[in-house]
Design a protein around this nucleic acid. Structure first.
Lengths: 115, 115
DNA sequence: TTATCACATTCACATTTCTGGAGATTCTAG
DNA sequence: CTAGAATCTCCAGAAATGTGAATGTGATAA
């Protein structure tokens, strides 16, 4: 198969994994460093099983890395730059403006850019 | 709904639309300017109905813009920067290396970076 | 050691969404 | 009207989602 097709397929897979609001928020929550499952669940307002399943997917695709400490499982981004890259995608929703106010975008950009 | 959730949902939608190898290749094919449906179909080795379907999706989400000239429909990227952004995603598959050789990635990067 | 709690993962299942192919339909130029 | 170009419709098979229940593990106490 031509390299373009192979690579496009891989890219599509990455996009597919990030094609979920919960997982996007997880990537952004992990932008500054590791968090354990229950903190994530708490911050995102989700049940632990769901968070765990999302993490499994992210882990299987090497987007996050797990570190165990006692009974807690900490996760961090394999490549912290990914959070910024995802955030850059906001550039392309500003123009569609479909039900998304600019203020919402600004707010999110601000929140996910804080150190 | 908190702005972060709203924005994450929108971002997820963009990612979802790009989560298809054909559509990624289309975005890259359009990086330098407009093309009509049959040229796209030809370049990508797909049937026109399928290309048209993909374009419909991209159009509905303002990722591409249509321009008609006679019986031909030309499409171009709403924001040409998107092609570069998508290409940047390659950064994150280089580390996974799951069945994708580095040479494939380099080749694709080269091809989709040509002017 | 055993019992128990806390944290996390996995399983099973109903539901939803995505996909891709074939054919019908619309639209336009000549 | 005719032919070519592109789009739309329909549907069965595949994949992703979400929820609750069940199962693992590590720490802690008796």
């Amino acid at each position: 198969m031509p390299s373009r097709q192979v690579v496009a397929k891989e890219l599509a897979e990455i996009f597919g994994i990030l094609a979920h609001a919960d997982r996007i928020r997880m990537v952004e929550e992990l932008r500054l460093g590791e968090k354990d499952v229950s903190s994530l669940a708490n911050v995102l307002g989700l049940e632990t099983p769901r968070v765990s399943q999302h993490l499994r997917l992210l882990r299987m695709h090497n987007i996050v890395v797990e570190r165990r400490e006692g009974r807690r499982h900490f996760y961090h981004l394999t490549n912290p730059d990914m959070a910024a890259w995802v955030l850059q995608g906001l550039t392309f929703i500003e123009q569609r403006m479909a039900g998304v106010t600019k203020s919402n975008i600004k707010a999110a950009r601000r929140l996910w850019s804080e150190e």
